[in-house]
Design a protein around this nucleic acid. Structure first.
Lengths: 210, 210
DNA sequence: GTCTATACGCGGATAGAC
DNA sequence: GTCTATCCGCGTATAGAC
């Protein structure tokens, strides 16, 4: 009588399914009933594995952040490491844009988010940045990455030429953005990332001599 | 019988009250019942002024964006104008952080957001940026501003020293961030903004000769 | 233009049987 | 560990009186 069969639910399965729901239909679509239905069980069964729904959302967020590669931090020179890390961070966010507002609240007590913050900050300090500046750089990078993953800039414009023609002369061609939204967003992110790190390098040059 | 008294509700009053609710308790707290209660009417009365709840949220968003100063665009040199505009944009967002995820979806058909996009793009093109670059710069700036207003970086760290001590050595002092969150976030935004525009200026120098 | 009354479904969470 | 039954509140929206 030692557990005749595998439990129907595991934390992993719950998190996987919850992530799929959030990705498909948004954070608001994640309800205990919907989650249970997709798992083939009844809603109250979830409470054997998580105390609250909040814990489930936390686990979803942590699993996403856990996938971000941090290996370049402390290995490559800081400007290259910062760029590579930002790309990996953004890729993880963009794969789950509906979770970004939740994740952007900060690491809280989620282990993967704390590991990430620790690694970035540590790499910058080890590279020679003063602690206060390392904090600011970490913050600024998160602003940029989170903002770029929060939603598409290009898709924010309606594909309807008549909307712009009269009132917004400069936006004459804005309706075409939607058709190339991935390239537009990608190029904008790359431009900003390169410019931002470039600007930081120039500031680093002024403190280094000290 | 010519309207003996002022109507209890106007679109303005509804938008004001809705904004107050969202600011105080989040976007999810904005329900028609709650909104009506705070206005001293019954929920169904709202439908005399707005067709759906979605329209109300749109009006809240547009009112926020309408308050962003755009006067520097096309007047000051583009780097100074871009910085001043970004600060005004961020201030408007930060006053209503709970609406940022909604606003970050893009201008859609909201007039104030379209005016803003039109003004920024127009100023950059008039300054000599190629149209494709002007689009990217507008996008990148929105990423950064939205990300910085989405939530506090500093407040994302729990004020509990024991959480970090063992596992995250570099975050030894992170628990102190919460106490200075406004200064930390402000300084991080300023650092990123200056570095970003700095980096853009350097790129501008390479295209200008053409 | 605003009201009351009402329809109907979904939400998180708990108690207690098996 | 999973189930059934259940609590109770909140959501949008409509119908029709005043």
């Amino acid at each position: 009588m030692v557990r005749p069969r595998t439990p129907l639910l595991t934390r992993e399965r719950i998190v996987e399914t919850a992530t799929a729901i959030v990705d498909a239909d948004g954070l608001d679509a994640l309800s205990t009933r919907r989650l249970a239905r997709d798992l083939g069980v009844q809603a109250p069964s979830l409470y054997n594995h998580f105390a609250t729904k909040e814990e489930i959302v936390d686990a979803v967020g942590d699993a996403i952040v856990a996938g971000v590669d941090l290996s370049m931090l402390g290995r490559d020179p800081w400007p290259a490491a910062l760029k590579a890390w930002a790309r990996a961070y953004r890729a993880a966010f963009r794969a789950h844009p509906n979770v970004v507002p939740y994740l952007a609240r900060g690491p809280a007590r989620r282990p993967a988010s704390l590991r990430l913050a620790d690694a970035v900050y540590g790499a910058l300090v080890d590279a020679g940045w003063p602690p206060a500046m390392a904090t600011r750089i970490g913050a600024t990078m998160r602003y940029f990455v989170a903002g770029s993953a929060l939603g598409s800039f290009a898709l924010g414009f309606v594909d309807d030429p008549s909307l712009y023609a009269e009132e917004y002369p400069h936006l004459r061609d804005a309706h075409r953005l939607a058709g190339h939204h991935e390239q537009v967003d990608e190029a904008a992110f790359e431009l900003g990332l390169e410019a931002l790190v470039d600007g930081l390098e120039r500031r680093f040059a002024t403190i280094e001599p000290a």
